[in-house]
Design a protein around this nucleic acid. Structure first.
Length: 640
DNA sequence: GCATCTCCTG
DNA sequence: CAGGAGATGC
């Protein structure tokens, strides 16, 4: 006649008091560290050199494959994202048999060539302008329709004046055919082109340098927290022997000016280092390009262009098993599951999306206190070969710099004026608005999921002033961020939701919004997701009741004789329902919760409490307190 | 009123 | 799994 739970299963009182009391107070702290880490790396000189190395790599690619890069590099630096897809598209087109590749022997060939070169030049100029800070030069129209682009591309040959306004798509539309043209004058043209590109790149680098130094020099203002302090002054090279100081950041002192205002010598060193490295890299770059460009002709086989296509991504099916940790210490198990280094690790970027303020008292959401992976992954992993977009980094550095406002963003309660906690539409409208501000709007381009998530993380974009709108906007126009905002819920979302159910039976709408960052939430979508979980619960409780009654019928006399293991029939039924593919390692905690639930049902049934119409309510009340935090990995829009 | 939940039904 | 009804809490 007693519904009390076995003590050993209650897992402490810390989580036993409804969702409101979930310990998300810890979240901001380590989040901040995350960003701090990112920030630090971002402003590191090493990033610059990485950037430059990558640039060189690109140039190398370029000279092996001038025409390919002519569309990528130029567009990349200028109008960001569009090119990413454009270039990929062009690759596909180029290698596909049906691609419209002119023979290059047409009489208009030379005219077209000249025109094209002018167009190129115009575009490069345009790019430089854009990079110099005139964000208005985005192409008109949404550029999402290939036919329209192709049409425009054709017109572009005849009508030079429009070239600057053409969407980037025209580049590859025109650029690919160009690569097949006779090589007669193309060598010089190529040199010219390369030169232009180099100039723009140099300009970029100069701007970056200036910006960096500027930020570095002024970056000691009043409103800083220790994290940013570290970040802005955290150049290892600059610090030299002092670099090790960074270690103890958790106890950083806000007023430590010595960290913020480096010694003049240090600053000078940094300056010199930067200058040296930049110029050296640029020189090397120029040398290499010109050497190669003059050493070989531009007519490369189309296959060669593929050389800079992205590496095949690791299978996204590999899942983190962040549940291994002993659940009993759950509230503070920070590194449980740290051993799982799936490709999805460090998917922090998505978490950076400042969803809405975590609602009232930092309520139910409390996403993931755990940190199942170390933050020390190299923030920039250019090994992802491919269009990992140095230009985007550049662009962000140039546009935003290590923005002072960053510190308050991801971890602090966002101002409530953004949106009321539950009106899902408002913030998204705002996001849509913001997204429009961004140049080169790009639609939703499906991408291999893994890359995007990792890329975003490694780019450490949070470092810049990213808010919901900005990240979403970036995501929308940036295929490499793989934040393809969905209008509706997909089977993948359903699958993800089911897996999330292993952790949380009663997710708040805030949690849902946090863990489905690629879903454009509105009232309907939110309801649907909530309904899903309601359905999950229904199935769950039905199974529980069924097996509890079975136990009663079977004459089980003691709850302690009822256990839920991975071999249990009950578990199999549940696993079959929520994890049909059986490719997810169900957390032990779920087994415990299931066992508790089963016990609840058993005791209730055996005590004939089920005569009360609302007898289940008491059980629900218990179970709803047993939710765990969903691992961070689930925040990746590309988790599945 | 709205959001959310359970329950029932298809 | 979705839709609807009814209950509940804010």
């Amino acid at each position: 006649m007693n519904l009390s739970l076995p003590d050993q299963n209650m897992h402490g009182s810390a989580e036993g008091c409804l969702e409101d009391s979930k310990p998300d107070i810890t979240l901001p702290c380590f989040r901040r560290n995350t960003y701090d880490e990112a920030l630090t790396s971002y402003s590191n000189g090493s990033i610059i050199s990485q950037l430059l190395r990558k640039t060189i790599h690109n140039k190398r690619t370029l000279d092996e494959n001038p025409f390919y890069l002519s569309s990528t590099a130029a567009t990349d630096s200028g109008q960001e994202d569009r090119s990413s897809v454009s270039s990929k598209d062009s690759l596909v087109e180029a290698s596909s048999p049906g691609a419209h590749i002119p023979t290059g022997t047409s009489p208009e060939g030379e005219h077209a060539m000249t025109d094209h070169m002018q167009a190129k030049r115009a575009r490069v100029e345009n790019i430089i302008r854009v990079m110099a800070g005139s964000p208005n030069s985005r192409p008109h129209g949404d550029g999402e329709r290939p036919d329209a682009d192709a049409r425009e591309a054709r017109e572009a040959y005849r009508e030079n004046k429009r070239k600057q306004r053409l969407p980037q798509h025209q580049d590859h539309a025109a650029g690919v055919p160009l690569s097949r043209r006779p090589a007669s004058s193309s060598k010089d043209e190529e040199c010219l082109k390369l030169k232009e590109q180099l100039h723009s790149m140099q300009k970029l680098l100069r701007q970056l340098q200036e910006k960096f130094l500027q930020v570095y020099n002024q970056d000691a203002p009043e409103h800083r927290d220790p994290d940013r302090t570290e970040a802005s002054g955290g150049d290892d090279r600059c610090r030299g022997a002092d670099g090790g100081r960074r270690r103890g950041r958790s106890g950083a002192e806000p007023g430590d000016r010595t960290e913020e205002e480096p010694h003049p010598t240090e600053r000078h060193n940094l300056e010199e280092t930067l200058k040296q490295e930049l110029s050296q890299a640029v020189n090397e770059c120029v040398d290499r390009v010109f050497k190669r460009a003059s050493a070989r002709g531009p007519d490369r086989s189309p296959e060669a262009r593929v050389c800079s296509s992205p590496d095949p991504q690791p299978s996204p099916t590999e899942r983190p098993h962040a549940d291994q940790a002993a659940p009993r210490t759950r509230p503070f198990q920070h590194h449980d599951g740290a051993e799982a280094h799936s490709p999805q690790d460090q998917t922090e970027a998505l978490a950076l999306v400042v969803r809405k303020p975590a609602g009232p008292p930092l309520g139910s959401a409390a996403p993931a206190v755990k940190r199942p992976f170390p933050v020390h992954q190299a923030p920039f992993q250019f090994n992802y070969s491919a269009p990992l977009h140095d230009s985007q980094i550049l662009e962000h550095l140039l546009k935003y710099g290590p923005h002072p406002g960053f510190a308050g963003l991801p971890c602090m309660p966002a101002p409530m004026d953004r949106a009321s906690p539950d009106s899902g539409e408002l913030p998204w409208d705002a996001m849509a608005m913001r997204a429009k501000v961004a140049p080169g709007h790009l639609g939703h381009h499906p991408r291999p999921p893994a890359l995007g998530a990792v890329a975003v993380d490694n780019l450490c974009l949070p470092h810049v002033k990213i808010e919901c709108g900005e990240l979403q906007g970036m995501a929308e126009r940036n295929p490499y961020m793989s934040l393809n905002i969905q209008e509706g819920l997909t089977p993948s979302h359903l699958k993800k939701a089911k897996l999330m159910f292993f952790y949380t039976r009663y997710p708040s709408s805030n949690v849902l919004k946090t863990f489905f960052p690629d879903v454009k939430f509105n009232r309907c979508i939110t309801s649907q997701l909530i309904k899903w979980f309601s359905n999950f619960r229904e199935f769950y409780y039905i199974q529980m009741e069924k097996f509890a009654r079975q136990a009663v019928v079977d004459g089980v006399s003691d709850v302690k004789d009822i256990a839920v293991t991975r071999d249990s029939e009950l578990f199999r039924a549940l696993n079959m329902h929520y994890n049909k593919a059986n490719d997810f390692h169900v957390p032990d905690r779920f087994l415990e919760v299931a066992e508790i639930t089963l016990h609840e049902f058993y005791t209730a049934v055996s005590a004939s409490k089920d005569s009360d119409p609302s007898w289940k309510k008491a059980i629900y009340k218990v179970i709803c307190k047993l939710d765990s935090d969903v691992p961070e990995e689930f925040k990746a829009s590309s988790y599945l």
